[in-house]
Simulated scan of single mutants.
Amino acid sequence: MSDFAVNTRRLRLRQWKDADRAPFAALNADPRVMEFFPSVRSRETSDTAVDGYMATIAAGGFSNWAVEVLETGTFIGFVGLSVPQRALPCMPCVEIGWRLAAEQWGQGYASEAARCALALGFDHYGLEEIVSFTALVNRRSRAVMERIGMVNANEDFEHPALPVGHHLRRHCLYRITPPGANPA
C-alpha cells in the first residue's frame, strides 16, 4: 500500500515523497500555520513525523496523508486519520486532522480533503466514529469540523500536553459517525 493515493475533485491524498519534506518543514515553521500549537516545529521534528506517516501508510494503515493540488502537483500539507499519542478523555479514538500551508487557506481544500479522509475511515477502514479536537480559540479548525458534518460533543477538556494556565490548554471535542449510523 506504499503507492496509496485517492483523488477528490481538486486534490490528491497520497503517500509522502521525500520531496515533501522541505515544504512540510516550512509549513511547520510558519507561525501562522502553528498559531494554535505550542510552538513551531523544527526540520528534524517534521522529518520524524513524515517518517512515521510513511511507515504507517506503507503498512496499509491510515495516517496523515500528503495532500497535493491535482492540477499542479503542488504539495500543500496533510489531512488524515490517526490515533492520538497522548492519553485523552476521549480515548480510545481515531482523530481526523489537517494542516495546510497558509497560502492555501480559504479555498475549501481542508474541507474537501477531510471529507475524503472521513469516507476512507468509514468505508475502507470500517471505523465506527471519528473525532477531532482543537483549542477552543481555534475558530478556523472548528469551522472545518462543522462544514464536514462533525458535531460539538460539548465535552471540553484540558489538553495534557499543555501546562495549566496555557492559553491553548482548553480544547473542544467534535465527533462524527458513519452516515446512517445510530450514535449511542
Rank of each mutant, 00 (worst) to 15 (best):
N154W: 14
H159Y: 13
A153H: 14
I130Y: 11
D3K: 13
V79M: 05
L168W: 01
V79C: 08
G80E: 03
E112N: 02
G52D: 06
P23A: 02
A117W: 12
F24N: 06
A87N: 12
A114W: 03
Q104C: 08
G149A: 06
P38R: 10
I96F: 09
M54V: 14
T56H: 10
M1V: 13
N182Q: 14
V40K: 00
D123A: 13
T134K: 06
I176A: 07
E103W: 14
G73F: 11
L168G: 05
D20F: 13
R99G: 04
A110P: 01
E103N: 04
H166V: 07
P183F: 04
T74Y: 06
F36R: 03
W65Y: 13
L118F: 13
F157E: 02
R139C: 04
T48P: 04
Y125H: 12
S39W: 14
F122P: 00
Y174N: 02
L81I: 03
D156C: 08
A110L: 10
G126D: 03
R147F: 09
Y53S: 01
W98Q: 08
F62H: 14
G52P: 02
D123I: 06
A135C: 12
V83G: 03
V94Q: 03
A49C: 15
F24W: 15
A114P: 04
A101D: 10
A19M: 09
R142N: 12
V137D: 08
Q104L: 06
W105G: 00
E71W: 15
T72N: 07
V164F: 14
E158Y: 15
I148Q: 05
A66F: 02
A5L: 11
S141C: 08
L88V: 02
R12V: 15
A22E: 15
R140L: 05
R43A: 13
E146N: 04
R142F: 06
L13I: 05
V79I: 12
H166M: 09
E158C: 12
H159F: 09
E71H: 10
N182M: 15
S42L: 07
A117T: 09
R10V: 05
L88Q: 04
D123R: 10
K17D: 06
H124M: 08
T48C: 07
A5M: 13
T8K: 08
I76E: 00
V144Q: 02
T177F: 10
Q85G: 12
H171F: 15
T72H: 10
W65N: 01
F122R: 02
V144G: 05
T45K: 07
G121T: 05
L168R: 05
G61K: 10
D18I: 11
T8S: 11
D156E: 15
I76W: 01
L27G: 00
P23Q: 03
N152K: 09
E71P: 03
P23I: 01
N7Q: 12
I96T: 11
